[in-house]
């Protein structure tokens, strides 16, 4: 009952924020554009390939979902602390664990809702054009896990940060670091300093954005040229199923460990 109330309030808070509608709009518009124009080869070249559209959707999710998950969760606790809302909430018969769980559920539900709205519209257009639904469903599922990982991370930061502004700047930096230190971005550093290739492969699985990218490509179109050097080495070592499992496991671990670390920080604040 308590958790449901807290989660519902969290959803309502998130859905009243402009970012929710902005992200849903970006998803709908971006997804539709990609689905409509990503298939230009169907008409020009006379063969049916949806890889480009799906890769575009994946790229869209890869940039937008971590950022919106981080920004919304970063505000959830630090923002409430600043306005006095958290102190009043905690003075009620609720535990800090319940509050943290409620915040997580509320933010995650709102983010997932905006993802579903975006992919739903895209899926409808894709279905009308005869594109099989399974790849989009897989993309949706993986994107949901990705968002869970970043909601956990964002709430962890929010539990620790003293102000909303500080939490926002930290999560924005995290997003940039994870994006910049992707497989290709990191390659030059590894070549420059002669670091072992194994380290690059491990980092590719540890970085949740890179994990998402590798897992998605392995699921939809396991092409070495798309996977990149670390991904290609990983699929060689782990196999396609192994890479998918490792990438999914990495994202799930981020979601779980981020949640536990954030909850610990939040309860320790008492």
């Amino acid at each position: 009952m308590t958790l449901r109330l807290l989660a519902r309030a969290g959803v309502r808070d998130s859905m009243r924020a402009y970012w929710f509608w902005l992200n849903a709009a970006i998803f709908v518009a971006g997804g539709l554009l990609l689905m409509l124009f990503g298939q230009v080869d169907v008409f020009l070249l006379g063969y049916r390939s949806y890889g480009r559209a799906l890769a575009g959707l994946m790229q869209l999710a890869l940039f937008v979902v971590p950022l919106m998950s981080l920004l919304s969760s970063a505000a959830a606790i630090a923002g409430a602390r600043e306005t006095g809302a958290l102190e009043y909430l905690l003075a009620q018969p609720v535990t800090r664990r319940e509050v943290f769980a409620g915040k997580w559920l509320g933010v995650a539900a709102a983010v997932v809702a905006s993802i579903v709205v975006g992919y739903g519209a895209t899926g409808a257009v894709a279905a009308a054009k005869g594109v099989p639904g399974l790849p989009i469903a897989v993309l949706l599922l993986f994107t949901v896990i990705l968002s869970a990982a970043f909601v956990s991370l964002g709430l962890w930061v929010s539990a620790v940060a003293s102000t909303r502004a500080r939490a926002t700047s930290v999560v924005f930096t995290l997003w940039l670091v994870f994006l910049a230190l992707g497989s290709l971005g990191l390659m030059s550093a590894f070549v420059r300093w002669g670091l072992p290739a194994r380290l690059l492969q491990v980092w590719s699985l540890v970085n949740p954005i890179e994990s998402f990218r590798l897992g998605m490509i392995a699921m939809l179109e396991p092409d070495a040229s798309l996977l990149g050097p670390a991904g290609a080495a990983l699929i060689g070592a782990l196999g396609r199923q192994g890479l998918i499992a490792a990438a999914s496991g990495s994202l799930a671990a981020w979601a779980l460990l981020g949640y536990l670390a954030g909850r610990r920080a939040f309860t320790a604040a008492a």
């Binding site: 006095g84 809302a85 102190e87 003075a91 018969p93 609720v94 535990t95």
Partner: peptide, 23 residues
């Protein structure tokens, strides 16, 4: 007991500053 919620059922609390809720 610090952190225990049950005691708060016995207490009605009015803080100094009105909490800001978007509700």
């Amino acid at each position: 007991t610090p952190g225990c919620k049950d005691i708060r059922r016995k207490i009605g609390y009015v803080p100094q500053a009105a909490p800001l809720y978007d509700m």
